[in-house]
């Protein structure tokens, strides 16, 4: 049983991590992340990079949907803005990688601010549907603004290059993506210790009350949209460096649903939730592939793989909403508590 986390100061109470045990686990996690690329093969590194990108984007969506309570089905389109910005900068100006990623984030942020404008007048489902409208309009722009986006065939992106090192393998990209994602996650975690973050939560819980308390709704809702799209934009930029080709068909509506599903499954409104959800949803198709491969079915078992995957995807969304609305992070918390209280209570 773990005891003795008595808090003796406000600073301690507000700290992200409050006990030695947590720091110890964090250190282990850090070592694991550092060591992982040296033991994993290209396939696992590929998945690790993909997970990093998805965590960044899911965390962004979580700021908007989980913390501010504004549902968006436009996350993939914002990633598209980021990806196209990075691709265009890389192709037309050849500017440094980190600058491109930042630019991707900022352009996506501008897009987010515009799309967020209706959020003062409409909310809830109407807002969700207006973000679908935004995705349709953006898809049209991607497909038809030939001089910048290259139309339907899209833009091919050169590998990221920093100080003469070309980031062209998953091994190298890992060292670029994972630190960026970690910084973004820590940034999000800290956001909710500030006035802004708390304002978001107040808006989510009851926006009219928040307004009465002196929180300017439009400004904070737009800020939330902007931040969320910034995250999406950077994630989209990483996506562009990762897949190296950006086309209008790269960011379908289904991808937006994927991110929403990830934060639902992981647990809305918690940092850990977005992380767990993104990891889980990214790994499910690969895990299913293995499981279907093991099943004692005929050799053509793979033929049912895609429909099964689609069903599982839907069933996860429905199942978590019905049976575990707080998501994976709640399960995780329960496991942790079990060990904290062991052996006195189970």
């Amino acid at each position: 049983m773990r005891i003795g986390t008595a808090r003796s100061s406000y600073r301690h109470d507000e700290a992200l991590f409050d006990s030695r045990t947590q720091y110890a686990w964090l250190a282990i996690l850090g070592v694991a992340l550092l060591g992982f690329p040296f033991v994993a093969d290209e396939y696992w590194l590929y998945l690790a990079c993909l997970v990093a990108i998805n965590i960044a984007s899911a965390t962004g969506l979580n700021i908007l949907t989980g913390y501010t309570g504004l549902v968006s089905l436009g996350q993939a389109a914002f990633m598209g803005i980021g990806a196209y910005t990075v691709a265009a900068f890389e192709q037309k100006f050849g500017t440094p990688v980190l600058l491109n990623l930042l630019a991707g984030g900022f352009v996506a942020m501008l897009g987010g601010l515009v799309v967020g404008l209706p959020s003062l007048r409409v909310k809830g489902l109407y807002l969700a549907i207006s973000t679908i409208a935004a995705s349709v309009v953006l898809h049209f722009v991607f497909a038809n603004w030939h001089s910048v986006t290259g139309g339907h065939s899209g833009i091919t992106v050169a590998p990221a290059e920093i100080l003469g090192i070309s980031f062209d393998t998953s091994f190298r990209l890992y060292w670029l993506f994972v630190p960026i994602t970690i910084m973004m996650v820590i940034g999000a975690a800290n956001l909710f210790r500030t006035r802004i973050g708390r304002a978001f939560i107040a808006i989510r819980d009851r926006d009219i009350s928040a307004e009465v308390l002196g929180i300017p709704l439009l400004r904070y809702k737009l800020l939330s949209f902007g931040l969320s799209s910034f995250y999406a934009g950077v994630a989209g930029g990483m996506w562009a460096y990762f897949f190296r080709v950006v086309t209008p068909e790269s960011f379908p509506l289904l991808m937006s649903i994927f991110f929403l599903a990830a934060i639902i499954v992981g647990g809305m409104g918690t940092i850990l939730g977005a992380i767990l959800g993104a990891i889980f949803m990214t790994m499910v198709p690969e895990a299913l592939k293995l499981i279907v491969g093991w099943l004692p079915l005929s050799t053509d078992a793979t033929l049912i793989l895609s429909p099964v995957r689609t069903i599982v995807f839907g069933a996860l969304i429905v199942g978590f909403l019905v049976f575990e609305p707080l998501g994976l992070q709640e399960i995780w918390r329960r496991i942790r508590r079990f060990f904290h209280l062991w052996p006195f209570r189970a």
Partner: peptide, 21 residues
């Protein structure tokens, strides 16, 4: 072979898996 489900991320995952092994 590996199933790709005609989705780019999964095709690339399959490529990485097959070529690394």
């Amino acid at each position: 072979p590996e199933d790709s489900a005609y989705a780019v991320d999964q095709s690339v995952a399959a490529f990485k898996k097959i070529t690394s092994q």
